[in-house]
């Protein structure tokens, strides 16, 4: 079994405080893997480490057998690992279409080109058309991103991560702040646009996690205390003690 992503004894300290305390985790090719854990467990920090936003103190991050620990975000994206953000992180004054154009320019090889006008590039137009259709944003293509509704902004946030062409995606709470019906729609959207890709996702909604995840890892105080199928995690006593017992009541 080849691993899409492998974390080996990953550590991160801020000053004398160790936030990530030796994380070991592997992502199988094509699986949907959920990362859960109580607030402050270090889930977002772990995402920042993998995506290059911050550099780890020690340990290895193997992406397709290459150590990407400490590399800048742009290099990690080009290697095929992209992410979305918990707090919507789009280009607010630009149109939805221009947001997506930015995201597809690198993979289509146009990079920093100054020799063609972007609207006249047929491959960009076709790719953006496809993405807009998938995300259900076709009618909003020419509206500025900050005029979108919250679920639409979240869809665009997801779209930027997908558009970069990466085969492995890190999604940081894609349903954060959504109501029940919006969550359901967002779940369908994520399943649709990430088909065939490897997925690591932080999520708090247990319903969502048990519905979509192939495997679940539980992060508590900077360490993975269990990894397994949803059934195994549900039955795991350590997890129940640390986390699930209270959360399931909350969810119910």
């Amino acid at each position: 079994m080849t691993h899409a992503l492998e974390l080996r004894n990953l550590k991160k300290s801020f000053g004398s405080v160790e936030i990530i305390r030796g994380v070991n985790l592997d992502l199988r090719q094509g699986e949907r893997h959920a990362l859960i854990g109580p607030n402050g467990a270090g889930k977002s920090t772990l995402f920042h480490l993998i995506s290059g936003r911050i550099a780890p103190t020690s340990g290895e991050i193997l992406f397709q057998s290459q150590n990407i620990a400490g590399k800048p975000p742009a290099e990690i994206v080009r290697a095929g690992l992209s992410r979305s953000f918990q707090i919507t992180n789009i280009f607010p004054q630009m149109s939805v279409l221009d947001n997506l154009r930015c995201a597809v320019l690198w993979k289509l090889g146009h990079r920093y080109s100054i020799f063609r006008q972007t609207p006249t590039l047929p491959d960009v137009a076709i790719e953006c058309e496809r993405l807009l259709d998938q995300l259900g944003l076709t009618r909003r293509a020419h509206d500025t991103a900050d005029s979108l509704t919250y679920p639409e902004q979240r869809a665009l946030e997801l779209g930027l991560a997908v558009a970069s062409g990466a085969n492995t995606l890190l999604l940081d709470e894609p349903m954060a702040g959504m109501n029940h019906s919006e969550t359901e729609a967002a779940l369908q959207l994520i399943m649709k646009v990430t088909e065939g890709k490897t997925l690591l996702m932080v999520e708090h909604d247990m319903g969502v996690i048990f519905e979509m995840a192939d495997r679940i890892s539980v992060l508590v105080y900077g360490q993975i205390i269990a990894t397994g199928t949803p059934q195994e995690i549900r039955a795991n006593r350590a997890v129940q003690e640390a986390y699930l017992g209270t959360s399931e009541e909350d969810a119910a």
Binding site: A74, R78, N89, I90, F91, P92, Q93, A161
Partner: peptide, 13 residues
Amino acid sequence: RDNAERIEFLGFS
């Protein structure tokens, strides 16, 4: 101009 950080996560410097 809009969001210099996000552009890094789309492959650009």
